[in-house]
């Protein structure tokens, strides 16, 4: 609770019977971890979390949030396309080869094909980069 008064000293806080009761319960709950020295791992994890929070700044937040949106967008777009295509394919009679070829008259189908060909081109360019091994200095 955010209080309007200044913080009390530690002794006064610990003297509060509800706080003391809560601490005793917590200590009992932590006993197996304390005795097995396993609480150390949790403290180390907390320490690492705290380090991350200390290091996080506006730029890092923006980058992480943008990466999150891009991943979500990719999954969202792929999911939408998959769901839509799956519903149409499942609800229709299998087309004949002639009917299939007539689908190419649909500009959106051609745009989709063009997208996939471009995607394959981009993948190919990246694969080519992996294949090039520069000479040693």
């Amino acid at each position: 609770m955010l209080t309007a008064t200044k913080p009390q000293d530690a002794a006064a806080v610990l003297a509060d019977p509800d706080t003391a009761e809560g601490l005793r319960d917590l200590a009992e709950h932590l006993t197996p971890l304390l005795q097995g020295r396993r609480l150390h791992n949790v403290v180390d994890l907390l320490s690492a979390t705290s380090d991350f929070i200390d290091m996080a700044d506006d730029q890092l937040t923006q980058k992480l949030a943008k990466a999150f949106e891009e991943v979500v967008w990719a999954g969202w777009s792929a999911g939408n396309a998959l769901r839509s295509a799956s519903a149409t394919a499942a609800d229709s009679e299998p087309p004949t080869l002639w009917q299939l070829s007539r689908q190419l008259n649909d500009p959106e189908v051609r745009r989709g094909l063009f997208f996939i060909i471009q995607l394959l081109g981009a993948v190919g360019r990246q694969v080519a980069l992996e294949a090039e091994i520069p000479e040693d200095d």
């Binding site: 609770m1 955010l2 929070i53 996080a56 506006d58 937040t61 923006q62 992480l64 949030a65 943008k66 990466a67 999150f68 949106e69 979500v72 967008w73 969202w76």
Partner: peptide, 29 residues
Amino acid sequence: VQPTPPTKVGGLMRKTFNRGVYWATARGL
């Protein structure tokens, strides 16, 4: 509202929401 002390973690949560989570919320995710 039960007011609690403002924190840096709270600030990071808000900034992450502003820049990324909001758009996932709009998409219903």
